[in-house]
């Protein structure tokens, strides 16, 4: 009887550990002209709950004779998600610097999603003249379609954050925008927040 109780208890402990309501960041990869492995520092916290990306070349500049420039950085976060739980993102934090002459515009775009449909929208817009550091928390739209797919077992899902910055001008002015860092945290009120829902409800 004692052994049976221990086995039942053991089973419950294992299940509660594995089926906990927490997604874990297993792996982060950056791709694109602006964030090659050589120019991006990726730090995942030991508990797999937070990431900080620091960029040294995620920047675009525009000068005489150019009307439009762009660059991009793709961030793929591979998450281990418990069964019957679906996640979505609440926010992303960006820090950077922008310097624009008069009549120069800078825009930051984000496309995010777990596969299938992506949510694409403009997150920040700057108009010159401007010369300042920026720190922006971008809150993302949330709907049923933006949640990760439900699964009856623990599974891997890829959270995609596709970041694009653009510069435009119609005159011979100059401009620069750089993204220094992106912060992401799971289940925390700061940074990138993953919200979750019970798939059985």
């Amino acid at each position: 009887m004692m052994k049976q109780s221990l086995l039942i208890l053991g089973s419950l402990v294992v299940e509660s550990m594995v089926y906990g309501q927490t997604a874990i960041i297993e792996r982060v990869r950056t791709l694109g002209r602006a964030c090659s492995v050589d120019t991006t520092a990726t730090n995942v916290s030991p508990d797999g709950q937070a990431i900080t990306l620091t960029f040294s070349e995620f920047a675009a500049d525009i000068s005489d004779g150019q009307s439009y420039v762009r660059t991009f950085c793709r961030v793929n976060m591979d998450l281990l998600v418990p069964e019957n739980v679906a996640f979505t993102i609440a926010s992303v934090d960006y820090r950077g610097f922008v310097s624009l002459d008069d009549d120069v515009e800078a825009n930051h775009w984000l496309s995010f999603g777990f596969g299938g449909s992506m949510y694409t929208f403009e997150t920040m817009a700057f108009a010159g003249p401007i010369f300042e550091d920026y720190a922006e928390r971008v809150w993302l739209p949330i709907s049923n379609e933006s949640y990760s797919p439900c699964s009856r077992r623990q599974n891997r899902v890829r959270l995609r954050l596709h970041n694009v910055v653009t510069l435009r001008q119609n005159t011979d002015q100059e401009g620069y925008i750089g993204v220094d860092s992106l912060d992401a945290e799971l289940n925390q009120p700061l940074g990138l927040v993953l919200k979750w829902k019970n798939c059985n409800l």
Partner: peptide, 15 residues
């Protein structure tokens, strides 16, 4: 052109 594959997910990125 780059591929990021992990588990069942694949991302092809074209510069």
């Amino acid at each position: 052109t780059y591929l990021d594959a992990f588990g069942p997910n694949a991302t092809f990125v074209f510069d």
